[in-house]
Simulated scan of single mutants.
Amino acid sequence: MALLMGAASPAAFADKAPVYTGLFSNLAVQGHDPVAYFTDGKPVEGKKAFSTEYQGAEFRFASQENLDLFLADPETYAPQYGGYCAWAVAQGYTAKGSAENWSIVDGKLYLNYNDKVQSDWDQDRPGFIASANTNWPDLLTD
């Protein structure tokens, strides 16, 4: 079941997509279910049968229940900074966010580039979040 959510926003016309999907894909979170990080505590592959479009990207879910949770409140479950690497955004640039390198901080999902970056991120999550919040979404037009 594919549904279109949200109206065009200024980010929709930015130089970079508001949701990281990779060069040859339109899949957010590399096809992983963003709700599963909260409900299962781990990355879980989504299924095409349970998908929706949000901010110009396709989000997939492991179940109808997870899709329904997302549709009811996408801002709760969508990764921060569009799924770009949270540490990179804190540094003032964008980089790929990996579905395998993640954390939930204060009820929000953050993705990072790799294990090394995740380790750096873990050293000062609150500080990096504060910096990233200042930098985002201006980085989409750099």
Rank of each mutant, 00 (worst) to 15 (best):
Y77K: 13
A57H: 07
W87V: 02
A7M: 07
L109H: 08
K116F: 08
W136R: 13
Q91M: 15
G46L: 09
W102M: 06
N112A: 11
M5T: 15
N66I: 02
N66M: 06
A14V: 05
G22D: 04
P74R: 10
P10T: 11
P79L: 09
G46E: 08
N133V: 04
G46F: 07
A99L: 02
M1F: 09
P34C: 06
P137L: 08
A62G: 11
L140T: 04
D15T: 11
A72N: 12
K42Y: 06
A90I: 01
T39H: 05
L23V: 08
A95Y: 14
A7E: 05
W121C: 06
L139W: 07
Y54W: 15
Y113D: 08
A130N: 04
L69S: 12
G83P: 07
F61H: 06
G107N: 12
A72T: 03
G31Q: 11
D138P: 00
R60M: 03
E75I: 01
E65I: 04
S98N: 11
S131I: 01
N101E: 14
T141L: 02
N26G: 13
D120V: 10
V35M: 09
P74V: 10
L23A: 09
A86C: 13
A28N: 12
T76D: 00
S9L: 15
A8I: 07
F50D: 12
Y84G: 01
Y84N: 01
D15W: 00
W87M: 09
F59P: 01
Q91H: 09
M5I: 15
A8K: 12
A28V: 07
A28R: 05
L69T: 00
A78W: 13
T94K: 04
N135L: 08
D138K: 15
V44C: 06
S25W: 09
Q64W: 00
N26S: 13
R60W: 00
A130R: 04
A88R: 08
E65W: 00
Y20K: 06
Y77N: 03
T76M: 01
Y20F: 15
G56K: 13
L111C: 03
F59N: 08
V29D: 10
W121H: 03
N66S: 07
M5N: 15
R125P: 01
Y110W: 13
A14W: 07
N135V: 12
H32N: 15
V105D: 13
W121G: 02
A17H: 10
G6A: 07
A57Y: 05
P34W: 08
G22L: 02
V19C: 03
Y113N: 14
F13H: 12
K108F: 09
P43N: 11
D138I: 00
P18T: 04
P43W: 08
F59R: 10
L3H: 12
S51D: 05
T134H: 12
F38N: 06
A130Q: 10
W87P: 01
D40Y: 14
K42I: 04
M5D: 02
P79T: 05
F59D: 04
L109E: 07
Q80W: 05
N135Y: 05
G82L: 05
W136A: 06
G41A: 03
D124K: 12
I104C: 12
F70I: 06
M1Y: 08
F70A: 10
N114P: 14
